[in-house]
Design a protein around this nucleic acid. Structure first.
Lengths: 239, 239
DNA sequence: CGACTTAGTGTTGCCCTGACCCTAAGTAGG
DNA sequence: CCTACTTAGGGTCAGGGCAACACTAAGTCG
């Protein structure tokens, strides 16, 4: 093989069959009450492996990439098989390809998705699928522990500079609901007054209120997609 | 195939040979003077394709992933073949997998790299490899136009919140050199006084100066890896 | 009708930034 | 030697944004 042909062979196949195979997996996040404290927490569904390697262990839902399918379509498809839901947000996370991450050579392109709490209630139980508190999973198959941790890191970082929190919420929501999302993801309480100020300008007031509660009815808002998406700080004074 | 086995088949091979194949490509950035203005600008090397598809067109350097090779190793390897250089920064960019991005089904995992100007001078000419101004490339093979644009977007965004500018520089550098990097990447001039203030705290003074110039000798600094990496703003007042 | 609860506003002080002016420290040339 | 020039680097000031926290608004429940 000449030097030139070695430099750009993108698109060339025809190797032997010990080629690398390609899978797409998805980290699916939803907010549900924590079993102990009851406060909103990040959950995700896992699938029990029914054959080697790692038979019996929990793993991220996924499967091999079909030749006719785009990467994101494959992820969406996986999500539907696993939860019956449509993602409110779907984004590529990272490609994991360490040689020793699986006995056979597999590169996994991992997506992460957010599903809203309202749809979450409609999830039908599916055999071999179970939901877990994201921060508490361990002992997963392959390198999936690392992948979940990386996905959580990305979610926590991205929520401070990108309007992804709405991925957990219905179209219309109260400021308290939105704040609950941020508090669940960041894992600490936020000042309601300052939170409101930071969100104003990114939200459209619907004019409606949520009624039927035993206190002052909160206004309903909608995400304003035209808003400037400058970064949020939420720093805590530490002196 | 049962439902269960469909849910998590990560690691299973044994499909027919119309499987998807996997390539790793690398966007390699270096700073060189712009041919017209002379001011520092982002360049990248491309490789001329010597066979179909897209024969004769320029493409990102890369090649199929070897089964024994990690993803980043493959990217580093490509970089060495193409430039003879070692990257000062190497990072995964994105996995591009649109079904129609190539006549045969290829998913490309793309990395991007920074090389320092000092090493850049040692680049030996390699047949079929040519360097271009990154903002001016067009008409590349496959979807590589999109990939280059995406890589530039990432570089410009990331330089404001992550210490990657040092990837273009030697270990010790002056503030003017560092500012030149930011100006080249962001494409606009920065106030030297305010730039200095923002960088102070992220830099270690070496005590040495750069001498032999016909004006006041600038101090040499080194990147302080322990510095807090809060985001930089560089906003322009617009009133 | 008053206690309670949650929604939402005002105020204040601090820090950071952008704009801009000023001083420092070299070289070059008369 | 002394002055002009160039680039390095520091100082100052006004405005904005944010964290902290006190405050008002608007409902329900007894």
């Amino acid at each position: 093989m000449t030097l030139q042909s070695d430099l750009s062979r993108d698109g060339e196949a025809g190797e032997t069959d010990d080629r690398v195979s390609l899978a797409v997996s998805t980290v699916i996040f939803a907010l549900r009450p924590h079993p102990a404290t009851g406060s909103p927490t990040i959950w995700l569904p896992l699938v029990r492996r029914i054959r080697e390697p790692f038979e019996g262990r929990w793993a991220l839902p996924g499967g091999p990439l079909e030749p006719h399918e785009d990467l994101a379509s494959s992820a969406r498809h996986t999500l539907e098989r696993t939860t019956g839901l449509t993602p409110n947000h779907l984004e590529q996370l990272y490609a994991f390809g360490r040689v020793d991450r699986s006995p056979d050579r597999v590169v996994s392109i991992v997506y992460w998705a957010l599903v809203r709490a309202e749809e979450d209630a409609q999830v039908v139980p599916i055999p071999n699928v179970e939901w877990f508190v994201a921060d508490e999973v361990a002992g997963l198959a392959f390198d999936h522990d690392d992948i979940v941790e990386y996905a959580l890191t990305r979610l926590r970082a991205k929520i401070t500079y990108s309007p992804i929190a709405y991925g957990f919420l219905p179209d219309e929501f109260t400021l308290a609901q939105l704040r609950e999302v941020y508090e669940a993801v960041l894992g600490r309480p936020l000042d309601p007054a300052n939170f409101r100020r930071q969100m104003r300008g990114r939200l459209q007031a619907t004019g409606r209120c949520l009624e039927g509660l035993s206190h002052r009815p909160p206004a309903l808002y909608r995400h304003d997609p035209t808003s400037s998406r400058t970064t949020l700080t939420f720093e805590r004074e530490s002196r």
